[in-house]
Lab assay of single mutants.
Amino acid sequence: SEHYTFDGEEQAIRFMRDMEAKNLKYELQIHNGKYIIQVD
């Protein structure tokens, strides 16, 4: 699995939509205002 970190919500949402379009599962965590997305 890989981790991707985003500072902004818009970037994170765009990335998650992209993952959904590719049928990839992901998990979102928010730490200290950063959006951390783990992709299986």
Results as ranks from 00 to 15, higher is better:
E20Q: 08
I30T: 04
I37F: 09
D7F: 09
I30P: 01
G8R: 12
K34M: 10
K22S: 07
F15N: 02
K25G: 08
M16F: 02
S1H: 14
A21P: 02
I37Q: 00
S1M: 12
Y4G: 01
Q38V: 15
H31R: 12
Q29K: 12
E2K: 13
A21L: 11
R17P: 01
A21G: 09
K25M: 08
Y35I: 06
K22I: 07
M19A: 08
E10M: 06
D40L: 15
D40T: 14
Y26V: 13
R14N: 10
E27T: 14
F6N: 00
R14T: 06
D18E: 14
K34A: 05
I30W: 05
A21Q: 10
K25F: 08
G33P: 00
L28I: 10
Q29D: 08
I37H: 00
F15I: 04
Y26G: 04
Q29A: 09
Q11H: 07
Q11V: 06
S1P: 12
I36P: 00
L28N: 01
V39I: 11
H31M: 12
Q11Y: 06
Q11F: 06
K25S: 10
E10N: 05
D40V: 15
Y26T: 09
V39A: 03
G8Y: 14
Q38M: 14
S1N: 12
H31S: 11
H31A: 10
I13V: 09
Q29N: 09
I37E: 00
N32W: 04
Q29P: 00
I30G: 01
K22N: 09
R14P: 04
F6H: 00
K25A: 09
A12R: 01
E10I: 05
G8C: 15
A12L: 07
Q38L: 15
Y26D: 01
Y4A: 03
H31C: 15
F6D: 00
T5Y: 13
I13Y: 09
N32D: 12
M19P: 00
G33K: 03
V39P: 03
G33H: 05
L24W: 06
I36H: 11
H3K: 13
G33R: 02
I30F: 10
E2R: 14
V39S: 03
N23C: 14
E10A: 09
I30M: 09
Q29H: 13
Y35H: 02
K34H: 11
E9G: 03
S1F: 13
E27F: 12
I37W: 00
F15R: 02
D7H: 07
M19D: 01
L28W: 11
K34L: 10
F15W: 04
R17H: 10
L28F: 10
E10T: 07
V39H: 03
Q38G: 05
Q11R: 05
H31W: 10
M16Q: 03
D7A: 07
F6Y: 03
D18G: 05
L28R: 00
N23T: 03
G33S: 03
D18H: 09
Y26N: 01
T5P: 02
N32G: 08
E27H: 13
L24H: 09
Q11W: 07
E10Y: 06
L24F: 08
K22Q: 11
I30A: 03
I30D: 02
H3Q: 13
M16Y: 01
A21D: 09
F15T: 03
L28M: 10
N23F: 06
K34D: 02
A21Y: 08
I37K: 00
N32P: 01
K22P: 02
N32T: 03
D7P: 05
N23Q: 08
Y26H: 03
T5E: 12
Y26R: 00
S1G: 12
G33M: 02
K25P: 09
F15G: 02
F6I: 03
D18M: 13
R17Y: 07
S1I: 13
L24S: 04
R17S: 09
E9D: 04
G8Q: 14
D7R: 03
R17F: 06
Y4E: 02
T5I: 14
L24C: 08
Q29M: 12
G8F: 14
I36Q: 05
D40Y: 15
E2L: 14
Y4H: 09
S1V: 13
N32A: 06
F15P: 01
D7N: 06
K25V: 08
T5Q: 09
S1T: 12
E27M: 10
Y4M: 05
E20G: 04
S1Y: 13
Q11T: 07
K22G: 05
N32R: 05
Q38N: 10
A12S: 02
V39E: 01
L28S: 03
E27G: 05
I36K: 03
E9V: 11
Y35K: 00
F15K: 04
E27Y: 12
F15M: 06
N23R: 07
N23S: 08
L24N: 05
M16T: 03
D7T: 06
Q38Y: 15
K25W: 09
D18S: 09
E10P: 04
H3S: 12
Y35R: 01
Y26A: 11
F6W: 02
E27Q: 12
R17V: 08
H31T: 11
I37D: 00
E2P: 11
E10Q: 08
E9F: 13
L24V: 12
H3A: 11
D40S: 13
N32Y: 05
Q11K: 06
E20R: 05
M16V: 06
G33A: 03
S1K: 13
K34W: 09
I37A: 03
N23E: 07
K22W: 05
N23I: 02
G8D: 15
E20Y: 04
I37V: 13
I13M: 11
L24P: 01
D40H: 14
A21I: 08
M19W: 03
I36L: 07
H3V: 15
E2M: 14
L28P: 00
E27I: 14
Y26W: 08
T5H: 12
F6K: 00
Y26L: 05
Y4P: 03
I37Y: 01
Q29L: 13
M16A: 06
A12P: 00
A21W: 06
K25L: 08
Y26Q: 00
K34F: 09
R17M: 12
V39C: 03
I13T: 09
E2H: 15
L24T: 06
D18V: 08
I37P: 00
A12D: 01
K22F: 05
D18T: 07
K25N: 09
Q38K: 14
T5F: 11
D7I: 06
I37G: 01
L28T: 04
F6L: 03
M16H: 01
I37R: 00
Q29C: 10
I37M: 02
Q38E: 09
L24Y: 08
Q38S: 14
D40K: 14
Q11E: 15
F15Y: 03
I30K: 04
M16S: 01
A21K: 11
G8A: 13
R17N: 10
M16E: 02
V39Q: 02
E27C: 14
L28Q: 02
A12V: 04
D7C: 13
I13L: 13
D18A: 12
K25R: 11
M19N: 03
Y4S: 01
D18N: 07
H3F: 15
G33I: 00
F6M: 03
E20P: 01
K34V: 11
A12G: 01
M16L: 09
M19C: 15
E10W: 08
Y35E: 00
Q38D: 07
Q11P: 07
I30Y: 10
Q38I: 15
A12T: 03
K34I: 11
K34N: 05
E2A: 12
E20N: 06
N32S: 05
D40R: 13
Y4D: 01
T5R: 05
K34T: 07
I13H: 08
Y4L: 05
E27V: 13
M16K: 01
Y26S: 05
E27R: 12
E20H: 06
Q29G: 04
G8T: 15
E20I: 08
I13R: 11
D40W: 15
Y26E: 00
M19E: 02
I36T: 07
I30V: 10
K34P: 00
L24D: 02
H3D: 07
A12I: 02
I36V: 10
I13C: 11
M16R: 00
R14Y: 04
A21S: 11
Q29T: 14
A21V: 07
M16N: 00
L24Q: 09
D40F: 15
I13N: 11
V39M: 08
M19G: 02
E9P: 12
H31Q: 12
Y4V: 06
F15E: 02
S1W: 14
